Amino acid sequence: MRLTVFWQRMVDHFGPAYADSFARDHVMTQLGGRTVHEALDAGWDAKDVWRVVCDTMGVPPERR
């Protein structure tokens, strides 16, 4: 998954104002205690990060 697709899905789900805030501030154990930004900066694949966000935040299957 390209980063542009990842960020568009984040905006689609969380809204333009909250997507980046969530990505900066929400620490997830499934990301090794990292935020979305930290996981991506550490080399995690965007698709894997999106799966963790979906699992953690209960994103409906049709939006995954």
Rank of each mutant, 00 (worst) to 15 (best):
W44I: 00
F14D: 12
T56S: 09
M28W: 01
D12G: 05
P60Y: 14
D20F: 11
V53P: 04
D41P: 00
V49F: 05
V52F: 12
V27L: 03
T29D: 12
G32L: 10
Y18Q: 11
V59K: 04
V49H: 08
Q30I: 00
D12V: 03
T4L: 03
R2L: 08
A39H: 03
G15N: 10
M57T: 12
D12L: 06
P16F: 05
G33L: 14
T56I: 01
Y18N: 11
H13A: 12
E62W: 15
A46F: 00
L31S: 05
V49N: 06
T56V: 12
R9K: 10
T56H: 13
V11A: 11
A46E: 10
P16E: 12
D20I: 02
R63G: 11
R24N: 04
R51L: 02
E62V: 14
R9V: 00
H13Y: 15
L40C: 04
F22H: 09
A19G: 06
T35I: 02
D20S: 12
P61Y: 15
G43V: 07
V59G: 03
W50Q: 00
Y18S: 08
G33P: 13
A23S: 11
P60T: 15
E38R: 10
E38V: 08
S21F: 15
D20C: 07
A46C: 01
D48L: 03
P16D: 06
V49G: 09
V36H: 02
H37I: 08
K47E: 14
A17N: 10
R24M: 05
H26A: 05
K47G: 15
F14W: 13
F22E: 08
V52E: 09
S21W: 14
H13Q: 12
A17E: 14
D25F: 08
T35S: 10
V36P: 01
W44Q: 01
G15S: 09
D48I: 00
D41N: 12
F22Y: 15
W7R: 08
R64G: 11
R9P: 00
P60E: 15
T29A: 12
D55W: 06
L40Y: 05
W50T: 00
Q30N: 08
P16W: 05
H26N: 02
E62D: 15
V52M: 05
R2T: 13
H13W: 13
R51K: 03
L31C: 05
F6A: 07
D12R: 08
G32D: 06
A42N: 06
V59M: 03
P16S: 10
H13C: 07
A42H: 05
M28S: 04
R9Y: 00
W7G: 02
Q8W: 10
R51N: 03
D45N: 10
M57W: 06
L40N: 02
D45Y: 06
V27S: 01
R51D: 05
L3R: 05
F14M: 14
G58H: 11
T35H: 06
R2M: 08
V5K: 12
M28F: 04
D45R: 06
V36M: 04
M57L: 14
F6C: 03
L3M: 09
L40I: 09
M57C: 12
K47D: 13
W44A: 04
V59E: 01
R63W: 15
P61R: 14
G58D: 13
G58L: 12
A42W: 03
V27R: 10
V36T: 05
W50F: 01
R24E: 10
M10K: 07
